[in-house]
């Protein structure tokens, strides 16, 4: 019963595979086709005869850069909030909470204006820099750094290890779950970006895959196999990563263990 309900949820995802690799015209077949035939020709066509590789690389580059920056900024700020007593710490804590509460849709217009004035429209930087800091990432690192014994930092001070070296070589490696969670959640958010690049770019050169897909959708509506293949290309990295790490992703989203305990 449980599994049946759950399977219902992935039927649409499964159907992308069916349509992408089925025979020509399978879309228009009644009753619907259920079995994928694994014809990869349309997929190869999409990858070789269009700019699709470019979009994939754009997405990979943007996502990678965002992940690296988010982990770095989150670790630094998380360390400051967890370990360094300084005036303004509480203020920053509330400032982060405030960012979490700002409604994203209402900010797009002024954000566009800010990027315009910074001459960042239509650049890779516009895809990355505004997302280079993550509120949940900072809180996550803060929480993990607070668990590290105080003596670890003190012995580093006695041995003359600089704060940055300590963060890089001791604190961050000891906060591996925070790193993993931040990487996974940033990957999903960044790879799935659609509205932001839609507004902030107009050059096909730097478009990420989701945006390209939406243009593709309008241009090639009748070519279902190619369209589904393209969608599958956009989808598969997410499916792969999710397949291997679903347990951690689900736990990260839930903010803790999901199994009942006393």
């Amino acid at each position: 019963m449980r599994l049946a309900v759950a399977l219902l949820f992935i039927i649409p995802v499964y159907w992308i595979l069916v349509l992408a690799t089925g025979y020509h015209g399978a879309v228009y077949h009644l009753p619907p086709v259920w079995v994928p035939l694994f014809h990869w020709a349309p997929m190869v066509y999409v990858l070789t005869h269009t700019h699709w590789m470019r979009y994939v690389l754009n997405s990979v580059g943007i996502t990678t850069a965002t992940i690296v920056l988010v982990v770095a900024t989150s670790a630094l700020a998380g360390y400051a909030l967890a370990e360094i007593p300084f005036k303004g710490q509480t203020a920053y804590f509330f400032l982060i909470l405030g960012v979490m509460m700002l409604p994203q849709q209402a900010l797009l217009v002024p954000q566009y204006v800010v990027l315009f004035h910074l001459h960042m429209l239509n650049t890779y930087a516009a895809m990355v820099v505004p997302f280079a800091a993550s509120t949940s990432g900072i809180f996550l690192f803060r929480q993990f750094f607070k668990k590290i014994p105080v003596s670890f930092g003190e012995i580093a001070r006695i041995e003359g290890v600089s704060t940055l070296t300590y963060i890089r070589r001791v604190a961050v490696p000891l906060a591996k779950p925070a790193v993993a969670t931040t990487v996974l959640l940033t990957f999903i958010a960044s790879w799935n970006q659609f509205q932001w690049p839609l507004i902030m770019t107009n050059s096909p050169q730097i478009q990420p895959i989701e945006l390209a897909l939406s243009h593709y959708m309008q241009a090639y509506e009748a070519n279902w196999r190619e369209l589904a293949s393209a969608a599958l290309i956009a989808l598969s990295p997410i499916l792969l990563v999710f397949g291997f790490t679903q347990r951690y992703i689900v736990q990260a989203v839930a903010g803790g263990d999901l199994n009942a305990k006393d």
Binding site: P12, V13, W15, I16, L19, W191, N192, F194, I209, E210, L211, L213, S214, M217, L227, A228, A231, L232, A234, L235, I238
Partner: peptide
């Protein structure tokens, strides 16, 4: 991703 699954 929303666009990819919107297609289906």
């Amino acid at each position: 991703p929303v666009v990819a699954t919107s297609i289906i």
